[in-house]
């Protein structure tokens, strides 16, 4: 096993432990200390307004697969979908979900059915909730999703998943409909596009905090705390690496990372 592998294993194990610890701490404390992310604050309001108006909330899960690193953002989108179904269960119309990946569409439909079953949502609502595949390629998915955004019954759009530059069509479509649009993706070029085209962008890891901000569970908050801890660890590691390299230990670090003596 290389030093990189050991470091990776340590990171995963310690991350796991921190999440457990923070989850226990969270369960023993009622205080929720999360910094304000305007996008989630406005999202909650938009959900409430949609329920009051009898409108739908559109959740777009992107086109990321479930067997790749892109799946992380897709799973966050699924968590949001679950929370939105629960929150908007009192509304006249259920949330509608769209995906650009086949496996993700299956998971989306499963999430809709499972969550609806837990809260005894009417079958008519479940059947109209969608969650189907609207396109297999980025642009076909974008065009198919645009039709959902432009629906008169949709008043809020949550774009949480894996997108490319095609996300600009989705954001501009939401803007034209004058509906609330929140967008987040792990795709960096798409983040640049989002920043210029959407009112409430989720930059960087803000997307992964969605579960915690939508009260998806204490483990989401615990994972945020663990991320904060590791963020500081990484900052410290980077600074130490810079100092070691300046001190002439650059080659040693390279050898350690590669695993050669």
């Amino acid at each position: 096993m290389t030093i990189t592998g050991v470091i990776g294993l340590l990171i995963v194990a310690s991350f796991f432990g921190l999440m457990i610890i923070f989850n226990i701490v969270r369960n023993n404390s009622t205080e929720v200390n999360l910094r304000t992310i305007p996008a989630y604050t406005k999202l909650k309001r938009a959900i409430g307004l949609a329920v009051e108006d009898g409108k739908q909330i559109h959740v777009s899960l992107g086109r990321g697969g479930v067997t790749s690193p892109q799946s992380a953002s897709a799973f966050v989108g699924l968590s949001m979908l679950e929370r939105v179904i629960r929150i908007a269960s009192a509304g006249d119309l259920p949330p509608v979900a769209t995906t650009g990946n086949a496996a993700l569409s299956i998971l989306a439909q499963d999430t809709i059915r499972g969550t609806s079953g837990e809260i005894d949502l009417k079958k008519t609502k479940v059947s109209s909730a969608g969650g189907g595949l609207v396109g297999l390629t980025p642009f076909s998915y974008a065009v198919g999703t645009m039709s959902a955004i432009r629906s008169d019954t949709v008043s809020a759009n949550i774009l949480a998943g894996w997108y490319g530059n095609e996300i600009i069509w989705l954001t501009t479509a939401g803007e034209r409909q004058s509906s609330f649009t929140m967008a987040g993706t792990a795709h960096l070029p798409a983040q640049a596009v989002m920043y210029s085209s959407v009112e409430e962008p989720l930059i960087g890891e803000e997307l992964f905090a969605g579960g915690a901000y939508l009260d998806a569970g204490s483990m989401h908050e615990a994972s945020l705390n663990a991320q904060d801890v590791f963020r500081w660890v990484l900052v410290g590691g980077i600074l130490i690496g810079i100092l070691l390299k300046l001190a002439g230990f650059g080659q040693l670090i390279q050898n350690l990372l590669v695993g050669t003596p």
Binding site: I11, A72, A186, F208
Partner: peptide, 11 residues
């Protein structure tokens, strides 16, 4: 940050 979020999601 995305990597940390991905790790957290996976865990």
């Amino acid at each position: 940050g995305i990597a940390l979020g991905t790790i957290a999601t996976g865990l």
